[in-house]
Nucleic acid binder design. Structure first.
Lengths: 344, 344
DNA sequence: TTGTACGCGTTATCAC
DNA sequence: GTGATAACGCGTACAA
């Protein structure tokens, strides 16, 4: 048999289902011997109460908000968004719990989405750093499951709190140029289109590239360092860059993590940051504050908050517009310096 | 009325409940006009399908594992444990989802625990960095909810994968002594007994203190720097330490985060690490690898893995012993150096 | 103290 | 196409 029910237990123990129920909810009104018998039957049959059926007579509704993400491996920004979601939810509404779903591949993502809809485990869904295909989008709409994205990309086709990577890339580059740098290298993810990674790196690179071109600057190929989104890969990539004769005076890294890897690589090569080399990152993680990294703040924590805010409104029936994140900010700290260096 | 049911909708739309159900599951076998009428009724009544009742006839069981933690604010180690849980769950068993519960106070913790048991939302529970009172423990046992802790403390009263802080504190101290240091300061959390923080700091300090005493070394009061578990607080605390005339030659910090704060403070005071000052942390976070921090590895990721492993076994009926974490390891990196410095 | 019958909100299976 | 009705597994009055 698949799963023994309360009835099976009752039969096995030679009692009524009411008695079993009382034992389960340890009511005092059960004889010790009867209780024993029931407990034994439960143990023998390996009976597990069905949590769903249990709720039904209690007239309670599970109020869950789902959070679906890639299995978190490398993107630091993700954790920060999730933290924002949690903090805001705990401030605003205590009646909801968060349910975390991790997906590890595109088919798995698809399957999970369908299963979430089918099982109705959640009343709303927050999609972190994952895109939706047209079909997936349709599916959510068709089943009337409120959802919102919190993503490291922008999207006008479905409600999501995203960010303008092109603009961020431009800003970072313009800042380095304003400091006097002309030889600027780019360190980022490979331009691959994994189901979770998209073209964040490409978008930020494009912003970089556009601004460089607008200033009549050509970026040599070996100043464009692309590697998997991983600390060690970025470090290796930067080491190779530093081995070339034509050194850049500044680096734009597509994430703080990669920026830190560049700093480590620079130190290994005897390059001082920011004296010999300026480095700007992207994200403004907490570590970046500690390491005094100049970076682009994209309001990760805030993005999580806004997502919850929006979703809760939708769940309560309001039909509000998708909120907008504050604009990306340049946070100038101590890893960037004018070029050529000025005495001061 | 509290919540309109499918019956209310049927009545309002002047159809049978079967039809409403069909509309809800968008079966094609419904006339467009009938569908409209039903949809209207749904909209008017503000009807929301009950996700629980929905599942019942589908013979599906929600298979959730709950993870209960404090609202994550400061402890970095927590995130690492959670990551271990997630990774392992995704490797071992894909039929379970994780449900995250955050508690923000002791009464809230208690309430949540009761609600989790009452509602039966989860089949098992992982308790991260939270203790259980005797009553709470009884409650879980009485309701037969499998559980396991993953904690920054040891406990023999209930199954948990913990760690021996006393021993860790001893090891760190002995290492510094073996390097020749005699003036060693301790930087850690205040010895307060918050519902989540326990006496981790006190335990590690005790290990430190015992070893120092065994070597006939007296630690002056101003070499014991206690502050809230927070980067800036630790930095301020370290700055004060460095303002005193009697400087230590080494620091044992109770966490990597606080160790990094000490490094920052040292740099602000013109002290070079490790040339002028050795610093050892505790945790071995990922950042610690990047920052080349000497630290005590307490196998945080692994602790999460073991917890899931144990819980899944329990859920499948096995009655296995609580697994043991590998022993705490010293990870010597570049923030510690012999004293007095040797030319090399 | 214990067993029975009904209700919880939905889906699925029938007749119609 | 549509409407009754029987499950689904469990809690709980109520009767015994």
């Amino acid at each position: 048999m698949t799963h023994p029910t309360i009835r099976d237990v009752a039969q096995r123990a030679g009692v009524g289902i009411g008695t079993v129920s009382r034992v389960l909810n340890n009511s005092p009104r059960v004889t010790a011997s009867t209780r024993r018998a029931v407990l034994d039957a439960i143990a023998i049959l390996g009976y597990k109460p069905n949590t769903l059926a249990r709720q039904l007579p209690r007239k309670m509704r599970i109020r869950n908000i789902g959070v679906i993400t890639q299995l978190f491996v490398s993107y630091r920004s993700f954790a920060e968004r999730l933290r924002g979601v949690q903090l805001a939810l705990n401030e605003i509404d205590h009646s909801y719990e968060l349910v975390l779903f991790n997906v590890r591949s595109m088919p798995h993502y698809d399957e999970r989405l369908r299963s979430i809809i089918q099982t109705g485990q959640v009343e709303g869904l927050i999609i972190i750093d994952l895109d939706l295909t047209g079909e997936q989008h349709e599916l959510l709409l068709a089943h009337n499951l409120p959802f919102v994205g919190v993503n490291h990309f922008q999207n006008r086709e479905w409600p999501c709190i995203g960010t303008d990577n092109l603009h961020g890339g431009r800003m970072a580059t313009e800042y380095l140029l304003s400091l006097g740098h002309r030889k600027i290298a780019y360190v980022g993810d490979e331009f691959v289109d994994v189901f979770y990674a998209f073209n964040t790196s490409y978008e930020r690179y494009t912003g970089f590239s556009q601004v460089m071109e607008a200033h009549g600057l050509r970026v040599p190929d070996h100043h464009i360092c692309l590697a998997p989104h991983d600390y060690d890969a970025a470090r290796a990539s930067a080491l190779e860059l530093f081995r070339q004769p034509d050194l850049p005076t500044a680096i734009f890294a597509m994430s703080d993590m990669q920026a830190l890897a560049c700093i480590a690589a620079a130190e290994e090569c005897g390059l001082r940051v920011p004296d010999d080399l300026s480095i700007i990152g992207y994200d403004d993680l907490e570590i970046s504050y500690h390491t005094r990294l100049t970076t682009m703040r994209q309001h990760l924590l805030e993005s999580g908050r806004l997502a919850i805010d929006y979703l809760l409104k939708r769940l309560s029936g309001e039909n509000c517009p998708v909120p907008l994140l504050p604009p990306i900010e340049l946070i100038a700290r101590q890893t960037t310096r004018p070029y050529p260096p000025v005495k001061g």
